[in-house]
Amino acid sequence: MAEWTIEQVAERFNEAAQTAHRLPAVRVQGYFNTWPAILRQPWETFAGEDGEYRLPPDPTAIDRMEETMGWVLWLGEEDRHLVWMRADGYRWRDICRRFGCDRTTAWRRWQRALLTVAMQLNATSKPIKASEIA
Rank of each mutant, 00 (worst) to 15 (best):
Thr116Ile: 06
Glu52Thr: 10
Leu115His: 13
Arg93Trp: 11
Lys129Thr: 12
Ala87Thr: 04
Leu82Thr: 00
Pro57His: 06
Thr60Asn: 06
Thr45Glu: 05
Ala113Trp: 02
Thr124His: 13
Met119Arg: 13
Ser125Leu: 08
Leu75Gln: 04
Ala61Gly: 11
Pro42Ile: 04
Trp107Leu: 12
Arg108Gly: 08
Met119Gln: 15
Arg103Val: 12
Ser125Thr: 14
Arg98Val: 07
Lys129Glu: 13
Asp94Met: 07
Cys96Met: 10
Leu115Ala: 15
Phe46Thr: 02
Arg91Asp: 15
Thr116Val: 03
Pro127Ala: 11
Pro42Gln: 01
Pro57Val: 09
Asp58Glu: 12
Arg40Leu: 12
Ala113Glu: 00
Gly51Lys: 00
Cys96Asn: 10
Ala106Cys: 13
Trp74Cys: 04
Asp63Gln: 13
Glu44Pro: 00
Met65Arg: 08
Trp43Val: 09
Trp92Ile: 14
Ala47Met: 02
Ile95His: 07
Thr104Arg: 05
Pro127Gln: 08
Lys129Gln: 11
Trp107His: 13
Glu67Pro: 03
Arg86Val: 05
Glu78Asp: 14
Thr116Asn: 09
Arg80Thr: 14
His81Asn: 02
Thr124Ala: 15
Met85Trp: 08
Phe46Lys: 00
Gln111Lys: 09
Val83Asp: 04
Arg103Pro: 07
Trp71Tyr: 11
Lys129Asp: 11
Ala118Tyr: 05
Asp63Gly: 12
Lys129Ile: 03
Thr124Ile: 07
Arg93Cys: 15
Gly76Cys: 07
Arg64Trp: 10
Ala106Ile: 09
Trp84Asn: 06
Leu75Asn: 06
Val117Gly: 04
Glu77Pro: 08
Gln120Ala: 15
Pro59Phe: 10
Glu52His: 01
Tyr53Phe: 10
Phe46Tyr: 01
Gly76Leu: 04
Met85Cys: 08
Lys129Arg: 10
Arg86Ser: 14
Met85Ser: 13
Arg103Met: 08
Arg97Pro: 00
Val83Arg: 06
Thr116Ser: 14
Gly51Asp: 07
Leu75Lys: 07
Thr124Pro: 02
Phe99Pro: 02
Gln111Ile: 05
Pro57Met: 00
Trp110Pro: 03
Arg91Asn: 13
Arg97Ala: 14
Arg97Asn: 12
Tyr53Lys: 06
Ala118Gln: 01
Gly76Ala: 11
Asp50Leu: 06
Val83Ile: 12
Leu114Trp: 01
Pro59Tyr: 02
Glu67Gln: 13
Asn122Phe: 02
Asp63Tyr: 10
Glu66Ser: 11
Asp88Ser: 15
Glu77Phe: 11
Trp84Leu: 08
Pro59Cys: 09
Trp74Ser: 15
Asp102Thr: 14
Asn122Tyr: 09
Trp92Tyr: 13
Ala113Gly: 08
Thr68Val: 09
Thr45Gln: 01
Arg108His: 08
Ala47Tyr: 01
Ile62His: 00
Asp58Trp: 07
Ile38Pro: 03
Arg112Phe: 02
Leu115Ser: 15
Leu75Phe: 13
Ala87Leu: 01
Asp79Lys: 07
Asp58Tyr: 06
Cys96Glu: 12
Pro59Met: 11
Glu67Lys: 00
Ala47Trp: 05
Asp50Asn: 07
Pro56Thr: 02
Gln111Pro: 03
